[in-house]
Design a binder for these strands. Structure first.
Length: 199
DNA sequence: CCCTGATTCGC
DNA sequence: GCGAATCAGG
C-alpha cells in the first residue's frame, strides 16, 4: 500500500480527531501503526508546538520546568464521539472490581452493591443480534471470580451473586471498556438502533 | 500485559 | 519516503 492522497487525507483527518495511530492504521488497512506514526511525523503534524525550543537532545526529555510551567500543551480536548448511552444494568450492580491501583482515573460512579436486583437483565430493546452474540460468548466465558478480574477482563456478571452460580465473563475486554466486545454491545446501546454492522 | 506515540536507520 | 524495530511511557 502506498500513501495516496486519499489515504493521507484520511490519516490527517483521523489524526486531527485525536484517533490513535493504531486505529488509523486499522481503518486504512495495509499499514501498521508504525507506518502511520512514521507518516505523521514526516508530514510534520506529530504535535504542533508553537514556535519555541524543540527537544534538543534525542536522549533526554526536557527537564522539568521550575515548579510552575506544565509541559503539557494539551493536544486533544477529548472529542470522544461516544454516544449518550446509558449503561444497561447487568444482572447485578457494578461489581467495582478490586481496584488495587487507579489505572484509569476516569469518573467512575461507585454503586453500593448488594441490592437484590433481578437476576436477568430485561432483554427488552437490545438488538437480537447482540443478544445472540452474548449467549454464544457466555458459553465460552472464563467464568472468573471477582478476584480474578483484571483491567483487561470483561466484568460482565452472569448469574445470581447470592449463589455459586455466579461468575464474570472474563473474556478479553475492550480497551478502556469494562466489558468484552459482545457485552459492550448489550451494555452500551446506540442512541438509535442501528442495524449496519461493519468490520 | 495491554496500549500509546517517538525515534532511529536500513531499505 | 517508507516503516520495522526499538524506545519510552501509561
Amino acid at each position: 500500500m502506498s500513501w495516496t492522497d486519499e489515504r493521507v487525507e484520511l490519516l490527517k483527518k483521523m489524526w486531527g480527531e485525536g484517533q490513535s495511530a493504531s486505529q488509523i492504521a486499522k481503518e486504512l488497512g495495509g499499514v501498521t501503526r508504525n507506518a502511520v506514526i512514521g507518516k505523521v511525523h514526516r508530514l510534520g503534524l506529530s504535535n504542533r508546538n508553537s514556535g519555541g525550543s524543540k527537544a534538543a537532545e534525542p536522549k533526554e526529555k526536557p527537564a522539568a520546568a521550575p515548579a510552575s510551567a506544565a509541559p503539557k500543551p494539551a493536544a486533544a480536548p477529548k472529542p470522544k464521539p461516544q454516544p449518550k448511552t446509558e449503561p444497561a444494568r447487568p444482572a447485578a450492580a457494578q461489581p467495582a472490581a478490586a481496584d488495587a491501583k487507579p489505572a484509569t482515573p476516569a469518573r467512575r460512579q461507585i454503586i453500593p452493591a448488594g441490592q437484590p436486583l433481578p437476576p436477568q437483565p430485561s432483554a427488552n430493546e437490545i438488538s437480537p443480534e447482540a443478544l445472540a452474540k452474548v449467549n454464544e460468548i457466555e458459553k465460552k466465558a472464563k467464568k472468573l471470580s471477582l478476584m480474578d478480574l483484571t483491567e483487561r477482563t470483561c466484568k460482565w456478571p452472569v448469574g445470581d451473586p447470592a449463589t455459586e452460580d455466579f461468575w464474570f465473563c472474563g473474556l478479553p475486554a475492550q480497551q478502556g471498556k469494562p466489558y468484552c466486545e459482545a457485552h459492550v454491545g448489550v451494555a452500551f446501546q446506540p442512541m438509535s438502533s442501528r442495524r449496519d454492522r461493519r468490520r
